[in-house]
């Protein structure tokens, strides 16, 4: 009992492992798939509108200089998406120090980003490629 299932399972593991290594195609960058500079700026603007509408997180962002925040977020998205930008803001740890960002607040911002990309009709796999680039920042952001 169960031997074929084990081999199917091993096959699935290998497939997942390979996909993890080979997810980035060589030609088009994520930045291009997001619509270049215009696309990235649209995503950030839309996301900040959704943040302002979400009472779980709007207060935390209300004190920010919105023009500066929008510029830095766009720089950051562009940079992690292999676009031609350099992020010039503080590190994630520095910029969230003392804010005690909770998982709820972190997830709310992620949701704002997802819904912004949904509204802008960005393909789900492209959305997920950006989320995967940003996911490692979670530990640098929450409970600082």
């Amino acid at each position: 009992m169960g031997r074929p299932i084990v081999s199917v399972f091993c096959g699935a593991l290998v497939a997942l492992a390979l996909a993890g290594c080979a997810a980035q195609p060589a030609h088009r960058t994520l930045y291009e798939d997001l619509g270049g500079q215009k696309g990235v700026e649209a995503i950030v603007s839309e996301m900040l509108l959704k943040v302002a509408d979400d009472r779980r997180i709007s207060a935390a962002f209300a004190a920010s200089n919105l023009t500066r925040l929008r510029r830095l977020l766009a720089e950051q998205v562009c940079a992690v998406a292999d676009g031609p930008c350099k992020y010039t803001g503080y590190s994630m740890v520095e910029s969230h120090r003392g804010m005690e960002v909770t998982e709820i607040e972190f997830n709310a911002v992620v949701e704002a980003l997802i819904y912004a990309m949904e509204d802008l009709k960005i393909a789900t796999p492209t959305q997920n490629r950006l989320l995967a680039k940003l996911a490692p920042m979670r530990d640098e952001i929450i409970y600082r």
Partner: peptide
């Protein structure tokens, strides 16, 4: 995995 096999979440 956000970017799993065939670019879908897995």
């Amino acid at each position: 995995w956000l970017t799993g096999p065939l670019k879908h979440m897995a």
